[in-house]
Amino acid sequence: MIQYRLNRLFNSKSGNCFDVAIDHGFFNEAAFLQGIENISSAVNTLVDAGPDAIQLTVGQAHYLQSIAGRQKPSLVLRTDVANVYGRELPRALFSRMIDQPVEQALRLDAACVVVNLFAIPGQPEVTDQCVTNILRIKPLCEQYGMPLMIEPLVFRPNSEAGGYMVDGDPNKIVPLVRQGVELGADIIKADPTDDVNEYFRVVETAGRIPVLVRGGGKAADRDILERTYQLMQQGVRGIVYGRNVIQHANPAGMTQALMAIVHDGALPQDAYSLITIQN
């Protein structure tokens, strides 16, 4: 049954997936709301652009799932909420899972659920909470045939790079990705390495589990297209981008450009032209 839902995520022609994440409001950070202040408008814009999936929360999924028709993107449901992204961290950090996560996903007709696996310097308790969340949700995913996307995130020290800055060191990313696979991931969603050419190590350690690459912070158009192309050449099965799409001046054009790379193998310069055409 898990494969049946995976079939709704991965494009039937390319076998790859482009998931647009707009679940950022879950994390109580004002800066994360840029481009998704009006979530209904954001969802409609993305549905018209046609990515494979849209990542939403339990409180916002209805904006996607209430749209009529069979052609809309699949729902990836965020199942955990955390307070680890601020420039100034609170006294106590947490990563909490919603109640009955898989049952809620089923009621919302989600094709997949996603949960974090944080590695934050000096915060082993948060990693413990993440592992506990995964251990709790995995048997439910197996019971109900729901794919589990695990999101391993290695943070830089907040004192060094406050405000949700990830560490692109492959020697830190690879073991955390491997832990996610060992915990039962059906999909891995991981950050790009600082040196994009080393990303094959992440794909290798994931084995048969498909790897989708996170977009990370906002980047220039040509940079994000070039990076996406280079990552796709190393065996990744797609991307999960949020701010680089929804905060773009032309979200539909950027979606089409990224889809061309992910599904058609377009060169970055050719994909870039789709952004201007959409304008």
Rank of each mutant, 00 (worst) to 15 (best):
Y164R: 09
I173A: 04
A185E: 00
P147C: 00
D194R: 07
V174C: 09
A190N: 08
V174S: 08
P192N: 05
M149A: 15
E182V: 14
P157Y: 05
D195S: 05
M165K: 15
D186K: 01
G145Q: 01
P157C: 11
S159T: 13
I187T: 08
E142M: 06
D169E: 15
G184C: 10
L140W: 00
K138T: 00
P175V: 12
L140I: 07
V154E: 06
P175H: 10
V181Q: 15
D195E: 12
P157A: 14
N158K: 03
E198M: 14
V174A: 14
P139E: 00
Y164S: 14
A185T: 03
S159I: 14
Y199P: 02
M165N: 15
D167G: 09
A190F: 06
D167L: 06
G168K: 10
P147V: 01
D186C: 01
M149H: 00
S159K: 13
M165W: 10
R156T: 14
D167R: 09
D194S: 04
S159V: 14
E142G: 01
P170Y: 11
C141Q: 01
D169V: 04
P152T: 04
E182L: 07
N158F: 03
D195K: 05
L153A: 10
C141F: 00
L148D: 01
N158G: 02
G180W: 06
I150P: 03
N171Y: 13
P147N: 11
R156I: 03
T193Q: 09
N158P: 02
F155L: 07
G163E: 02
V174P: 00
V174M: 05
Y199E: 04
G162V: 14
E142H: 01
Y164V: 12
F155R: 06
R178P: 02
Q143M: 15
V181D: 09
E198C: 06
M165F: 14
P139R: 01
A190G: 03
L140H: 05
K189T: 09
L176P: 07
I187Y: 15
V174F: 06
D195C: 05
